[in-house]
């Protein structure tokens, strides 16, 4: 159950994640210079989400947490999506 409590992440793992995050930052800056028209926003957000996921999973140890905390995070993201989504049902069709 309490994996997060007993599990100590090694320095090396963190270093790998850090390197990944820096690479992705470089990637997103490079990609932003190329014009993909409408897809640019999407690509930026996907890269940002990958970075966020890495931070969440490794730096914040969610990988080692129980199903409950993972559920709470998903629930919150879902709530936020519903908030923004339903607002757009107004904004887009007005």
């Amino acid at each position: 159950m309490e994996d997060a409590r007993s599990h100590i992440t090694g320095y090396k793992t963190y270093a790998y994640i850090w390197a990944c995050l820096l690479l992705l930052t470089g990637l997103t800056v490079t990609v932003a210079k190329i014009n993909f028209t409408g897809f640019s926003v999407l690509i930026c957000l996907v890269i940002a989400s990958i970075k966020a996921l890495l931070v969440l999973m490794f730096f914040m140890h969610v990988r080692y947490e129980g199903a409950f905390l993972k559920g709470v995070i998903l629930l919150t993201i879902f709530t936020l999506t519903a908030m923004i989504g339903l607002t757009f049902s107004d904004v887009w069709y007005r």
């Binding site: 930052t25 997103t28 800056v29 932003a32 014009n35 993909f36 640019s40 930026c44 957000l45 890269i47 940002a48 970075k51 966020a52 931070v55 969440l56 730096f59 914040m60």
Partner: peptide
């Protein structure tokens, strides 16, 4: 601190990389 970092991860493309 990681959460604050994560917010910035989104703010960066949204304000600096608008194409």
């Amino acid at each position: 601190w990681h959460f604050v970092d994560m917010v910035w991860i989104y703010l960066f493309p949204l304000f600096y990389l608008v194409t």
